[in-house]
Design a protein around this nucleic acid. Structure first.
Lengths: 203, 203
DNA sequence: TGTACATCAGTGAACGCGCGTTCACTGATGTAC
DNA sequence: TGTACATCAGTGAACGCGCGTTCACTGATGTAC
């Protein structure tokens, strides 16, 4: 089982990254619940104890993968943010980009929002990087609802949450399967994403 | 470990339902990945082989729980559907009810949309009952966009999907944890749900 | 009402299995002098 | 440039564990006559 860049040196050289990549591969093949540390080690050509020099536990490997996913998402959102000046256009573009991230990086999305979720969201690093992702949306919407002293801000927060929910919901429905099953054959995702993030659709 | 209505008869009487209830309890305590057939049997006061007289496999137990969840959701949606005449009011009420179902039946929601999702959505019974849930939304939106011969229906479908995504996304963010972490302290869910499913919020 | 018998819904032991993690270890690498 | 030594990143065996599922079985139940 030849692996990515694997040499036969005693020291692997980049085991940390290799483990993370093979973790993603394994989840792709067997689902999050089918992922095991031992097999990832095996696939990576290394003994079952080796990963423990890079991650404190199985959960920490997953957290590291989640953080990497958020960093990729952040990068995508940042690019969109800088590309558009008009906040309304930017808003749709951010939404589309969020959904497209989920569609094109299904496994990352799974690890970020599905695997071990109770534990994951207590990890400080995960929270920071997730907050960063949200900030592009928040900044954009803030331009549309400048803060006033008297304002209790609930309109602003509701708008943020509505946009996030719309994008996250579409991403979830697509990634988790119901959309493919329930609406199978009826949809062209790209076209729909355009419509959904345009202003014309009700709400 | 005294169990719900357990007597010491050889025949349990309602083992099928007991297994499903304890499955939910166990997932609540240990998460979907911590759920095992053997322990559910143990908790139900029955040997490890007994569940196999009621479910073909562990997966089939989960599918049965998912179906039950969808039936509850359907029932809730049906009530709302019948309660409102105006399609616009009905639309917000359906959305709120969807989110509230997820919040109040977190575990069902998890089993319906998270556990074993690749397998689950190939189960015919699951697909039927999920389609039923969607139909209340579809019928309501159809009233707002009556079908015309020339129409390619994409506007209708986009609207259905937007509404579903918004509700499903909010439910997911709440149930999976990010909302609690990222926005912790900042939100009053009930108030936000009202705002989000009112017309005034952008998109 | 009694009885023979089929069927239903349990038991308990066993199968093969792979898991996460720890341990004492050792080979490879980098650094100070 | 060479050498002593600390540290890093592996090994391989073992730990204790519980899992999903199958098997031959048996006690309980319902039904036809």
């Amino acid at each position: 089982m030849a692996e990515t860049g694997r040499t036969d040196r005693y020291h692997h050289g980049d085991l940390r990254q290799t483990l993370m990549n093979n973790c993603l591969k394994m989840i792709e093949e067997k689902g999050v619940s089918g992922f095991t540390l031992r097999e990832v080690a095996r696939i990576s050509g290394v003994s079952p104890a080796a990963p423990y020099h890079h991650f404190k536990s199985k959960t920490e490997l997953l957290a590291a993968v989640a953080v990497m996913g958020f960093e990729m998402l952040n990068e995508a959102q940042r690019k969109i943010y800088e590309q558009y000046d008009d906040p309304v256009l930017r808003l749709s573009a951010l939404g589309k980009s969020y959904v497209m991230f989920a569609v094109n990086h299904k496994i990352y999305f799974h690890v970020m929002f599905r695997a071990d979720s109770e534990v994951l969201w207590k990890n400080r690093q995960v929270m920071n990087v997730a907050n960063q992702a949200l900030s592009y949306l928040e900044n954009t919407i803030r331009e549309l609802f400048p803060k006033t002293a008297a304002d209790d801000d609930s309109h602003f927060r509701a708008t943020v949450l509505t946009c996030w929910s719309k994008a996250h919901g579409l991403a979830s429905l697509w990634v988790d399967g119901p959309l493919k099953s329930v609406e199978s054959g009826k949809l062209d995702l790209n076209k729909l994403v355009d419509l959904i993030f345009s202003r014309s659709v009700l709400h």
